[in-house]
Design a protein around this nucleic acid. Structure first.
Length: 136
RNA sequence: UCAGACGGUCGGGUGAUCGCCUGUUCCUGCUUUUUUGGGAAUGGGAGGAAAGUCCGGGCUUCAGGGGAAAAGGGUGCCGGAUAACGUCCGGUUGAGGCGACUCAAAGGAAAGUGCCACAGAAAACAAACUACCGGCCUUACAGCCGGAAAAGGUGAAAAGGUGCGGUAAGAGCGCACCGCGUCUUUGGUAACAAAGACGGCAGGGAAAACCCCACCCGAAGCAAGACCGAAUAGGAGCCGCAUAGCGCAUCCCAAGCCCACGGGCGCAAGAGGCGCGGCGCUUUCCCCGCGCGCGGCUCGGGUAGGUUGCUCGAGGCGUUCGGCAACGAACGUCCCAGAUGAAUGAUCGCCCGUCGGGUCAGACCCCGACGACAGAACCCGGCUUAUAGACCGUCUGACUUU
RNA sequence: UGGGGGAUCGUCUAGCGGUAGGACAACAGACUCUGACUCUGUUUACCGUGGUUCGAAUCCACGUCCCCCAG
């Protein structure tokens, strides 16, 4: 179950932890592990620095499409994806691989069950047996 | 064929897989109800500028109403269109272009005040540096007196222009033409135009300097406002207390006075009324009008959050009629975005267009890259700014051919 | 989204329509054995495009960028 961050205070709380992963097309910020259990929540940020309203919307749409596909496989925490200047033009496959790698490196990837791998028809190879197979 | 002018339309198309927001209808889970979860069917889902926020209007709130009021702001040739406008249409005048056509904040400078640096004799009251002419004086130059304002030079700008006459020299001093002003007539709703007569020239620029004249404008904005509502401070009702004055009369009345002992007059305090006054009432002033202090109890209050305002509208399309047109009228028909960390997407195939390469050129084919400006946020009418490219229509000029 | 304000040397600021001034900084020189202080001199600017005007930093229109308020 995916939920969205909706308040400025929630975004600030995630950024205040300082835990983040930088990639050419996005920055992933990760919040503290929740005291009370809640589903995975994510937020999107696109500042005025990366372009006008059309560019910002396009960046957020690509990141949203990515989050809907990948984020259910993360541990239940708060995540913020920050768009960068190359987000609207970067190849989608590369962004997808970068995000998977980020989750793996930051150790917030959830260990997959059989049902997840069976439903992962989109080629989501996040099984435990092949951790070094990081696509470059 | 080339070069242009004006107006209009579009601004990628199509399919597959996985998704997003939302209207309507139906089924269903939870729940006392409201709320809310899930599913199915079906409909819709960015723009010509959605942008800048430069104007105008709707809508909402500020108790309210009136004052051709004041301050402040805006507009500015004329007529029309419109809910309204600084917009649009038609015309006038001026400027630009061979032309189609385009552009113009285009009222008033004899209502008044102020400004016009430097240069120049002089920058608007007029006046006269050099030079010109006459007279006096002198051999002559110089000097003095007078005439005149054509010439020189300065400047962005110097008191109509050209020609002829005239004169000592000159000058609208006189005349002709042009310009300008006044008046009359004609045409036009008007701006204005044309013609005629008269005047001898009235008088510089600038009003995007102050200003005058005519007309228009209340302020704030959907984060307006309304509803549900943790918190906190103020509010309303009732009760009690207190009146911040002044004046007037009335009621009541333990001081006091009078008495025929029934009562009467009546100070202070109290009660409410009227008038004057004070403060506040969304820029100020005036008029009407409305409200007014402290404690307790009750009602309530409205921040976080949520719901609503929120999409049917000066609406789109078509036909006919009126109008040169902007536009208006009638009839028919359609429902066509409503998000809120903010939906309309991600990936791929084919087509279309442009560019590059395979190939010196053309055709065909193949490969690769690219796809203008740009994202609704309450809603409309405009303006302004950005914009790859494609298409259509009308018109102008030049050249060639017939 | 709505409302408001601003732009002048490298920085901070003055500026009646008529030569854009000052302070700090920089550079050079003087003073000193050297440096600092002080003194003298030099360099450097009107956000952009149009318009009004003889003439615009100033007045007007449009645009660009920045800042503030409401949250």
């Amino acid at each position: 179950m995916l939920k969205k961050l909706r308040k400025r205070s929630e975004f600030l709380a995630v950024a205040a932890t300082g835990v983040r992963w930088v990639s050419p097309a996005f920055i992933l910020q990760i919040g503290e592990p929740p005291s009370a259990p809640h589903p995975v929540r994510y937020g999107l940020t696109a500042t005025r620095k990366i372009g006008n309203a059309v560019t910002r919307n396009r960046a957020k749409r690509r990141l949203r499409a990515l989050a809907v596909e990948i984020m259910p496989h993360a541990l239940p925490r708060d995540y913020v994806l920050v768009a960068r200047a190359s987000t609207p033009t970067y190849p989608f496959d590369s962004i997808r691989q970068d995000l998977r790698k980020a989750l793996k490196r930051m150790k917030v990837e959830r260990v997959m069950s059989r049902a997840d791998s069976a439903s992962g028809s989109s080629g989501l190879a996040l099984d435990a047996p092949n951790p070094p197979a990081i696509p470059e």
